[in-house]
């Protein structure tokens, strides 16, 4: 089985996952209290008008009919129209997605840069006071909720120091505080994993072999130890991405950023089915894609995995 067919297989398995998620979500949305028609129609409307609207939006149909109607359009690339703004969902998503992706990218860069480097330092200083201090700091920052951290950063950098905008989007620098609020708690998890892996690998026989060969310290630590210790961290990076999107919902709402997370939050409140479905569809697809990508990167880094999944066969 080649790497290509492995990837294809993995992505094909992803398809039922994606549709499973949309079906579940559809029923959850359907069973929520409230009526979107009443929300868009307002209060002083005749019952006839309400029925007319309901028929026009197809909401008089049983849920499975609605779902298949939606699905049949999705496979043709049509995500539907927002019941609130009357704009196509794909247009809304295209407008919002870049902000969210940028926020995720910046926060991942920050989180892994901090987490990996501090994790390594901590592992090399194992048992020393610095290691203890770093570990305690990590646990504390892991326990801080992102929104609270966001508020505090807003207060310090936006209000007291006036270095960065408090909320809204005025350019890339507006993403800095939100990205930090997303990144710090997750960097603590990265740090803990990196530290544990590094400590484990440093005890491996092959690292002792590297020392026995008389290799320079830097070469032993980076080439022989880190190379192997970083693998699980890379896996975590790719598995983390869906969680970052979840975090983006809160953080984008808090900072009034025009991203997909905030759109999702608003759409759930307004019961804008089509938009919620569209966003969740994108999130699920991204999750499947990043999981597959994660596997491919691990295969590229670990020759033992490569044999099972490609090269050797």
């Amino acid at each position: 089985m080649g790497l290509l067919s492995y990837t294809t297989k993995k992505l094909l398995i992803g398809i039922p996952v994606v549709f499973g998620v949309t079906i579940i979500l559809f029923y959850i949305m359907y069973s929520l209290p409230g009526d979107p028609i009443k929300l868009i129609a307002g209060e002083r409307v005749t019952p006839e008008r309400v029925e007319e609207l309901r028929r026009a939006w197809g909401l008089d149909q049983p849920p499975y009919v609605q779902y298949f109607y939606w699905l049949s359009h999705v496979v043709r690339g049509d995500l539907g129209v927002s019941i609130v703004t009357k704009q196509p969902v794909s247009y809304l998503l295209m407008q919002r997605l870049p902000y969210t992706l940028m926020l995720m990218l910046i926060s991942m860069l920050i989180s892994y840069a901090i987490g990996v480097s501090i994790g390594i330092v901590s592992a090399l200083m194992k048992g020393k006071p610095i290691d203890g201090l770093l570990s305690v700091t990590a646990i504390v920052s892991y326990s801080i909720p992102g929104f609270w951290l966001g508020l505090m950063l807003m207060l310090v950098f936006g209000y007291y120091l006036r270095l960065l905008p408090i909320s809204g989007y005025e350019g890339l620098h507006s993403l800095l505080i939100p990205a930090l609020s997303l990144a710090l708690p997750s960097s603590a998890a990265v740090m803990r994993l990196m530290r544990a892996e590094m400590i484990e690998v440093l005890n491996e026989d092959y690292v002792r072999t590297a020392w026995a060969k008389g290799l320079p310290r830097r070469r032993v630590l980076v080439v022989h130890a880190l190379r192997n210790a970083v693998l699980p961290v890379v896996v975590m990076l790719f598995l983390d991405i869906p969680w970052l999107i979840g975090g983006a919902v809160v953080i984008e709402t808090l900072f009034a950023l025009p991203g997909m997370g905030r759109l999702l939050y608003l759409s759930i409140i307004r019961q804008d089915y089509a938009v919620v479905q569209g966003i969740v569809l994108i999130i699920t697809i991204l999750t499947v894609v990043f999981n597959t990508l994660g596997d491919l990167v691990v295969a590229a880094l670990d020759p033992r995995v490569r044999v099972e999944k490609g090269e050797g066969m």
């Binding site: 026989d205 092959y206 072999t209 590297a210 190379r227 192997n228």
Partner: peptide, 8 residues
């Protein structure tokens, strides 16, 4: 020898 060589 099984664990003394670097797998990577």
């Amino acid at each position: 020898p099984m664990t003394s060589l670097n797998p990577a």
